[in-house]
Amino acid sequence: MNPREKEASQSPKTKKIELRGILLVVPTYLWLIVTFLIPVISVLMLSFAELHPVTKNIVSFPTMNNYLTLFTNLDYVVVLLRTLLLTVAVTISSVGLAYAVAYFITFKILKNKYTILLAFQAPYIASYMMVLLAWRLLLGRSGVINSLLMSMGLTSGPIELLGYNAFSVWLVLTATWFPWLILPIFVSLEKIDRSLLEASQDLGASPFTTFLKVTFPLSLPGVFVAILFVFIPTIGEFVAPAVVGGTTGLMFGNLIYDFFLKGFRWDIGSAFAVCLLCIVILAVLVLFRKIGFEKLMESL
């Protein structure tokens, strides 16, 4: 209990204060319940129902058919696996790159650390869509990078890897996300007591051993926050695959999008959404267990 709460509870006007508190949170409460909790729960229910394709009335309930559709169709399973693979790959590469930059800023730069940190956030005053548009022009079989390479005579034909495909989605998501992850990692690196590092060195550890045994474990809170930051939006991503993914880079989010906005099969789409949600919840729980909720909130 923080001191202010204590004060409130000791005040003779406790009852009145409680009423005031309830009145003040009612609008936010209602908003969260009506636009978030009820819709998500109704999607959960919908995933066990069968809807009439046109009238959207419930034909049968409960049924596992929607989940069977997902797991018996090889195409869908392939997209799900690709999404998981891409998400893990993006998480590793963007957190890794952000770690390197954060480490560099913390330990190798002596002056103007914060200016450099800020500079890395600057390109993202630009909207996400603008960054995606830029990559759309850079990549592609006849995109800027390929045409540049060809005109310089470095390759004879366009490099297929730089077309619109899953690799491009990985590249673009890594490039978009890593600047956001520098800050939380930097914060936990900056917090480390420098005397610990000196002690490790004095006791004869090589710089690499010091990093592995002292620096890295102490920076883990920041790393976990960074993982959370990138993992959640990436696994539900559907915009970047639509822009630079071509036909082979589509992700699970695109399937959900199609079921709801093109195919109008809300029931099947709901089952897909619930699967995605389960994966996210699992990942969040694992991360919270690893580090503890309190510590995670501290480093946020």
């Binding site: 636009t35 978030f36 998500v40 999607v43 539900g236 709801f260 959404a273």
Partner: peptide, 14 residues
């Protein structure tokens, strides 16, 4: 901590 696609389609269908 919930991906936008899930919040979006839930809200939309609702």
């Amino acid at each position: 901590v919930v991906p936008y696609i899930i919040m979006g389609i839930s809200l939309l269908s609702f």
